[in-house]
Design a protein around this nucleic acid. Structure first.
Length: 430
RNA sequence: GCAGAGAUGGCGGAGUGGUCGAACGCGCACGACUCGAAAUCGUGUUACGGGCAACUGUACGGGGGUUCGAAUCCCUCUCUCUGCGCCA
């Protein structure tokens, strides 16, 4: 949600932003909001006067009653009642206008960064920096499920029986590797100065609607039957929710946190679970990082954050690149965003393994995350950012494909060995 | 799950129908003292909104009600604490 002052003072900027995001159909909303806002303020002035009147009248009645002037008090009560009817009418209209205004404001996207490339959809995203050479293998790289099966690391049949499509059992060294990657990533982030956090895996609906749009909620979130609780789709939800409605002291910023959680997603809609394997599933685990900081620091943190992910992957000897999200592919809450993509030697292309976003104050405004600015003495909205450190099932695909040896074993890079009992490779089954 | 108590500013915590946006304390800001600091003393300090301004409105967990008037009374929901039960 953007600051309504922007629409009051610079509606052209908001419109230009909509055009850059190819959301031209929302253009009339800007003028509509300006009108509603005007009407709301007029009502407010009128209502304020009526309420001021009510307060004065009520005070007088108190005094009259005290002095025992019964009749005068009764007359004042009658006048007050009339005035209250008017207040009620005004408040009714105000409530209606506010609802419309809020709905409209919610669908106005955050102002995007100047350096976001303009493009219609994900096909126009732009490659950023590339890290490590993306080499082709001198042999055919099998589909990741076949690699997993050859290593005795997965049981999809059983998972389908117990839970249906979109779930898996990981076993043996593969399960251990999965945990190893998470543990390594956790320690990696702790070494970067982040605070490790294990958050709730279920959150209430008011938190959910604060951190995402209604459509996202429908398509992603699992609801617990009979309770006002949802399974989190990412720990970002509970991590950011932690600060809902709070005023942080300036010296407690930046909050730099890294969290572990399972993530639960319906994966409804256009893409769905059409792919065989573990690329898109209902339940996976993820190490996440979030930062809450002062506005002037968020650009720097954004750069640092996506680079941490790159550094992590490079340390595991997996080639990656930054893919810069274009204006049309940017979710409405985002100021800028990029994906980190890992190299797939099988597909001979990169695929998404993580996503880093700076939401500036848009998310903080929705959730009421503020900090006391010591210079102005005012409570101001903080900036929020989030980034994937690593999500093992997806990273496992990259890992297996990149570290597969000609003999079918899988190489374990140095940094992970202490989490794998010193092993340097994963052997074939039997 | 049952019973009782409770939810008030950045924090702790008074306040049980009008003079309460809210005592007091902590914290914070500024000033004095000091070579400087600590301690001490003084002043200020709830938030959000409308208005050029004077000024003004709203908010005491959420929602609804009673009343001319609600932090205060009633209903309801949520949460927290204490005891009991249940389960690791």
């Amino acid at each position: 949600m953007i600051d309504i002052n922007l629409i009051r003072e610079n509606p052209e900027l908001v419109k230009a932003n909509l055009k850059k995001k190819f959301q031209d159909k929302k253009l009339p909303l800007v003028d509509e909001i300006a009108e509603l806002d005007k009407r709301k303020r007029a009502l407010q002035a009128e209502g304020d006067n009526c309420r001021a009147m009510r307060n004065t009248l009520a005070k007088n009645i108190g005094l009259l009653m005290r002095d025992g002037k019964k009749e005068e008090a009764e007359e004042a009560k009658r006048i007050s009642k009339e005035n209250n009817d008017r207040v009620a009418r005004i408040e009714e209209e105000t409530a209606e206008i506010e609802t419309r205004l809020k709905t409209a404001m919610m669908s106005i996207p955050n102002i995007i960064a100047d350096d976001v490339p303009v493009g219609r959809d994900d096909s126009e995203n732009v490659q950023g920096k590339v890290f490590l050479e993306a080499k082709e293998k001198p042999f055919d790289v099998p589909y990741h499920l076949d690699i997993l099966e050859s290593l005795g690391g997965i049981d999809l049949d059983a998972a389908r029986r117990t839970s249906g499509n979109g779930f898996y059992y990981l076993t043996g060294d593969i399960a251990r590797l999965h945990s190893a990657v998470l543990n390594y990533a956790r320690d990696f982030m702790i070494d970067k100065g982040f605070t490790y956090c294990i958050p709730p895996y279920m959150i209430r609906s008011d938190v959910v609607s604060g951190v995402m749009s209604f459509e996202e909620m429908e398509g992603m979130m699992y609801k617990i039957d009979g309770e006002d609780l949802y399974l989190i789709g990412t720990s970002e939800h509970s991590m950011i929710g932690r600060f809902m409605g709070t005023v942080l002291s300036e010296d407690s910023l930046p909050q730099t946190l890294t969290s572990y959680s399972p993530c639960f997603r319906k994966e409804k809609g256009a893409h769905g679970i059409e792919e065989r394997g573990i690329y898109r599933i209902h339940q996976f685990e993820k190490q996440e990082m979030i930062v809450i900081c002062k506005p002037e620091e968020s650009e720097d943190w954004y750069e640092k954050m996506w680079n941490y992910t790159v550094e992590l992957f490079v340390s595991m000897e997996i080639p990656v690149r930054q893919l810069i999200c274009c204006s049309g592919d940017l979710a409405d809450l985002k100021y800028k965003s990029c994906d980190i993509e890992a190299w797939s030697p099988r597909q001979k292309k990169y695929f998404e393994v993580g996503s880093c976003s700076n939401l500036t104050d848009a998310q903080a405004r929705r959730l009421g995350i503020r900090y006391k600015n010591s210079k102005t003495g005012k409570n101001e909205f903080a900036h929020t950012l989030n980034n994937t450190v690593v999500a093992p099932p997806r990273m496992l695909i990259a890992f297996l494909e990149n570290h597969l040896q000609p003999d079918g074993t899988v190489y374990i890079p140095e940094v992970l060995r202490k989490y794998m009992g010193g092993k340097s490779k994963i052997e074939l089954k039997n």
